[in-house]
Design a protein around this nucleic acid. Structure first.
Lengths: 162, 162
DNA sequence: AATAATAGTTATACTTTTGTAACCATTTAT
DNA sequence: ATAAATGGTTACAAAAGTATAACTATTATT
């Protein structure tokens, strides 16, 4: 670990600190206007759209949500018929969650609704910047996803109380 | 606006939805452990580190924080002597905020503390991925910053009640 | 000079998220 | 067979963020 890398990491952290409220602005705000779901539900949907099936604990672990909170959010999503519980044949303690057809459609619509404000802004970008944004969000996502998820043993590495 | 671009935007939105809770995980969590400041204070510091002087309203506008909330957060930062109020000589209604020396030092330390968890993870990345992460966070930041800030008239474009 | 508008604060209620502890059902370990 | 560990739920408290309205001080408008 040399100095240059250390400075880079500081800069990355600062970028992320800066980024976070901007994302809240664009996401949190509009979901409340467009749906009766919480931001938390949205994150679960986002996670489920990448991982077909996740147990309650895995959701909590991946999103750093306390387990009781996951229960509540999933309850809401079930009330909207966007996800469903699947009982695990191998271990009857485990409850697996996966998106329904309706969930996927709704999620798509929600994303479009959410993006409406942002879409107008993004549309003003020239093709080149759009490409850059596309690539860089993908890269940030991939790398953060890689390093933030405790891939080897996702559950045991989670706080027991989560 | 062609189809390819539309799909790109959808994908960008999805990346951002995915990204947000990951950032919360890395930021929100550790600041609570390391300081007695809220995440909100952290965002204000991040904004102030980019803009030397901001009025209360500008802070609220840039971070989409309701004005009353800004007051509370800035009060905390002042209690920590990390920022100070400057009275505007041209308009005595305006209160300008800017970081103190102590604030800049503390912010630096906080960033390092925050990054400690993440740093260990980031350090495991090879040089190439680190570079990619560095560049892409920077790009996402720059572009989002550009499109999310209503640059022409930051204040009037804000909700009056903020 | 009177009125309207702006910047910021105070007060209050509410939503969302976080944190604990206790609990049940089921599985694993001894 | 009994005890310990795990996955999930329930219940409750506390923190953080959001939303509104009323208010003061100051500036701009007429």
């Amino acid at each position: 670990m040399n100095d240059i890398e250390s400075v880079s990491i500081d800069k990355i952290i600062e970028n992320l600190i800066y980024l976070h409220p901007l994302l809240s602005k664009s996401l949190t705000r509009s979901i409340r206007a467009k749906t009766n779901l919480n931001p938390g539900c949205l994150y679960i949907l986002g996670m489920l759209s990448k991982n077909e099936i996740l147990s309650m604990s895995e959701i909590g672990c991946k999103l750093s949500m306390p387990k009781p909170h996951v229960t509540g959010q999933v309850d809401k999503l079930i009330a909207e018929e966007m996800v469903e519980r699947l009982f695990d044949p191998h271990d009857r303690r485990i409850i697996n969650i996966h998106m329904t057809e309706k969930g996927m459609e709704d999620f798509k619509t929600i994303k479009q609704d959410i993006s409406k404000d942002m879409r107008e802004r993004i549309e003003k970008l020239d093709k080149q910047k759009l490409d850059v944004l596309f690539d860089s969000t993908q890269q940030v996502r991939d790398i953060l996803s890689e390093i933030m998820t405790d891939s080897h043993s996702p559950l045991t590495s989670c706080n027991k109380n989560q």
